[in-house]
Computed example of a mutant assay.
Amino acid sequence: MTATAHRPTSITPLLIPLLVGGLVAIALGVFGRVHTPTGFAVGPAGFSAALPMKVWLTTGAFVLAAVQVITAMSMWGRLGVSIPPAVHRWSGRLAFLLTIPVAFHCLYALGLQYDVPRVLAHSLLGCFFYGLFTTKMLVLPKRGTPGWTLPVIGGLAFTALVCLWITSSFWFFTTIGFKV
């Protein structure tokens, strides 16, 4: 049977991954809100301060997320050129790893902030992104999911990361400049 011969229409296999992803997003938001921010979390090794570190790591994740979209399109036969699936897997792994110190610093040092609309949007998008990422990782090994599952969840994760980049790195570059 080919991959396109039978597309299940049931979303039942998605319920647990969606529930767990939603719980991750909510747990991060609750932790970020109730945790007393320390003001410091991660040493900015190689950077002048924590903010430039976060900006450049997020920019790296943003670039790798674009690689994710291109390689996913190749894997789904949308480009007419074949890119090895390993490029997709490794660009995703590296993008995720780049977000870890950023998220840790944001949650531990700053918490979920709501006094500035841009920062509130950024905080909520961060929680949403990690919820989507969790959902995507739980859906990957599942068989019997609708054909639109990975493109939609992956597209939402990409969109969330782009919006995170806009509300952080783009803001930094246009307001403060290109500091390292």
Rank of each mutant, 00 (worst) to 15 (best):
Lys142Val: 09
Tyr130Asn: 07
Phe172Lys: 01
Tyr130Lys: 05
Gly147Ala: 11
Thr145Val: 13
Cys127Phe: 01
Val116Arg: 09
Pro101Val: 01
Leu107Thr: 04
Ser168Cys: 06
Leu132Asn: 15
Thr134Phe: 06
His122Leu: 06
Phe172Pro: 00
Ala95Gln: 03
Ala95Ile: 04
His105Thr: 13
Pro141Trp: 07
Ala157Tyr: 10
Ala160Glu: 05
Pro117Asp: 05
Ile166Trp: 12
Pro101Gln: 02
Ile100Leu: 10
Phe104Pro: 09
Gly111Lys: 00
Ser123Ile: 07
Trp165Ile: 01
Tyr114Asp: 12
Leu110Pro: 11
Val102Asn: 03
Pro141Ile: 11
Thr159Pro: 15
Leu110Lys: 09
Ala157Val: 04
Leu164Lys: 06
Val102Glu: 02
Leu98Met: 02
Tyr108Glu: 14
Pro117Ser: 05
Phe158Tyr: 12
Gly154Val: 00
Phe133Ala: 10
Phe170Arg: 10
His105Met: 04
Ala121Leu: 08
Pro101Glu: 02
Lys142Tyr: 03
Asp115Ile: 03
Leu110Cys: 11
Phe173Ser: 00
Phe172Ala: 02
Cys163Gly: 15
Val119Gly: 08
Leu94Ile: 08
Leu140Cys: 15
Leu107Arg: 00
Phe104His: 06
Phe133Lys: 09
Leu98Val: 04
Arg118Ala: 07
Leu138Pro: 11
Val116Ile: 10
Leu97His: 04
Arg93Val: 15
Gly154Tyr: 03
Ile100Ser: 09
Gly126Tyr: 00
Thr159His: 11
Leu156Lys: 02
Gly111Thr: 00
Gly147Pro: 09
His122Asn: 08
Leu161Arg: 07
Tyr114Gly: 13
Val102Tyr: 00
Thr174Lys: 11
Thr145Arg: 14
Gly154Gln: 01
Thr134Ile: 05
Phe133Ile: 12
Leu132Trp: 15
Val152Arg: 01
Val152Pro: 01
Leu140Arg: 14
Cys127Lys: 02
